[in-house]
Amino acid sequence: MDTASKFSFQYLSGKKFNSIEGKDAKESLVKWSMKGRLKAQAFSFDQPFKSYQKEDFVTAFFQDDAVVYNLQVVSSTGNLVPLGLKAAKVSVEELSCSVLSMTFFDRLFDAGIVREQGQISKCFDEYIGDFTISDELRKMLLSDESDHFDLYSDTEKQEFLFLLFRHMCLGGATCQYEDNVKPYLDITKLIYKDLVSVQKDPKSGDLHVASHVFRVHAQTEDGDEYYPDTLEHEQNFAYLIIDPLRRHVNVLYHKFGTSSFDDL
């Protein structure tokens, strides 16, 4: 095999993500039709990682037995099952992950999308794809006709923190949307802290994100995409969050659909 074979992986079955698996999170995820469809898992790897190796790393990841037989996906019946298929091809997109404070979202208040107490401003209903837009927040996230569509730059919209927030706001197929922004901000912050590693610079004392974040897709030999799903949808997503210092990689995955009500 090529240089991708230098990386091998171990499944960290004991790693728990309370931001997703905790009681409060489960209640919100059921409401947003994401329970049982949003999954975080952790693996370790055995070699130093540099960002220029991202293609090799992701290829090795999706060809490793520990990943293929432990990485979970949502089946056509809505159950979590092992991925079970090695990738012939992968696509990898590096994302920015530099935000260290939730003040990043203060401009939602400044622009009037969210009122002082967190209430989300309403708007006339319209429909984009699978989503009903009935407030200014979703309109800003989805419609280029929103007065606030440019509130965040294209670069900022590719920040991992922004993408997490967007995913939470849009939810699943039978999402019951929130009237207040607080639940979205709270779970976004918790998931971000659960997935991303922060390091202090020994000289300046400043904090910075140590993790590398990649949006990933896996394909068969014929070029058919099967991970995160065979169907393209903005709420079908998978991210690898790599901590090069601890040699851990967290996976965040979601498949758009109807929430699971078991195990509440």
Rank of each mutant, 00 (worst) to 15 (best):
G223Y: 15
L170Y: 02
T174W: 14
S98H: 12
Y227F: 13
S101H: 07
L170G: 04
L240K: 09
G129C: 06
A60S: 09
K193E: 09
D186M: 11
V196H: 05
V249W: 01
V198M: 09
I113S: 13
D194T: 03
G112N: 11
S121G: 09
F160N: 01
R247M: 13
D186W: 02
M1T: 05
L170Q: 08
C97S: 03
D243F: 11
C175W: 05
A25S: 00
K182W: 08
D206F: 07
H254Q: 13
R138A: 15
R246G: 00
D125T: 04
Y177G: 04
T3G: 15
D222G: 09
G112C: 10
V213E: 01
I133E: 08
S33Y: 13
L207A: 07
L108E: 05
V81N: 03
K54L: 13
L29Q: 11
R247S: 08
S28V: 06
D64F: 07
C123Y: 01
Q53W: 10
A88V: 04
D24T: 05
L240E: 02
F165I: 09
K193Q: 15
F62N: 02
G78N: 08
N79T: 14
V181P: 10
N70S: 04
Q72V: 07
G14M: 00
G118M: 11
Y152L: 07
L190T: 04
Y184F: 10
F45G: 02
Q41E: 03
F61S: 00
D65P: 06
Q119P: 04
S8Y: 02
P202D: 05
D125H: 06
E21R: 06
V114T: 08
Q63L: 00
S76G: 13
S260V: 10
S143K: 15
E136G: 09
K31L: 15
T77I: 11
Y177P: 00
E126V: 04
Y226P: 01
P244F: 00
G112Q: 11
L190E: 07
S75Y: 02
V99W: 12
Y177V: 00
Q235G: 05
Q53Y: 06
R166T: 12
K35R: 15
D106M: 05
G129Q: 14
A4D: 03
S75V: 03
F7E: 01
R246V: 04
E21C: 09
V181W: 13
N79P: 05
R107V: 00
F261N: 15
A60K: 06
N18C: 13
S76D: 09
E126L: 10
S91A: 13
F9R: 13
H254D: 02
T258V: 14
T188C: 13
D144V: 07
D130N: 13
Y226K: 11
L100C: 14
E156I: 06
S121K: 15
K15L: 02
L207I: 03
Y227G: 04
V198K: 10
S13R: 11
K89H: 14
N70D: 04
K200L: 14
